[in-house]
């Protein structure tokens, strides 16, 4: 990491601690929101400022699925593969999206535009299969419908 990046991480962490107090997970969530992932420099900064061993910070950061140590895409596409969504074709949606974006589930496109994720249940099984794009829920989704959602974002970006 460059010096500039380390200075930025330091600032992000400091601001977050001022806002959240000395709560590790809350601070990590702030960092994740700022960067879309948890950079190494930021985690080291957190460990130093909160006086928590780095190995514990790292342990927490790797324990929770909502934290990521690798950069995530700008748009996060989550497909539910819970039982109800699965029987209604959730797996087909993942396949279609994987083909469209040319990545596997859990990966990020090289241009850092999209991350494709799967989740095991979102708790709204009645409207399954569900696809969540940037926090917005789309119920009764089809493979083609999901691909269209992604294309719409790509089109909007290009304009």
């Amino acid at each position: 990491m460059t010096e500039v990046a380390v200075a930025e991480a330091s600032m992000v962490v400091e601001e977050s601690i001022e806002r959240q107090g000395e709560f590790l997970i809350a601070v990590l969530q702030d960092i994740q929101e700022h960067y879309n992932y948890l950079p190494e420099a930021a985690l080291q900064e957190v460990a130093a400022r909160l006086d928590i061993p780095l190995r514990d910070v790292y342990g927490v950061a790797t324990f929770y699925r909502s934290f990521s140590l690798a950069p995530k895409g700008e748009h996060i596409v989550t497909v539910c593969l819970g039982t109800a969504c699965h029987v209604r074709g959730g797996a087909r949606i993942v396949e279609a999206l994987a083909r469209e974006l040319e990545i596997e589930a859990g990966e990020t496109t090289p241009d850092l535009e999209f991350t494709l994720e799967t989740v095991n249940c979102l708790g709204c099984c009645a409207i399954g299969p569900i696809v969540v794009v940037d926090g917005e829920y789309h119920g009764e989704m089809t493979a083609q419908g999901a691909v269209n959602l992604v294309r719409k974002i790509q089109k909007a970006e290009r304009v």
Binding site: L43, R55, V57, Y58, T62
Partner: peptide, 16 residues
Amino acid sequence: LGFVDRGNKLRISTPF
């Protein structure tokens, strides 16, 4: 040293 990840991916390692 610490525990990294969880479930069936759990392992023991140093940070990063």
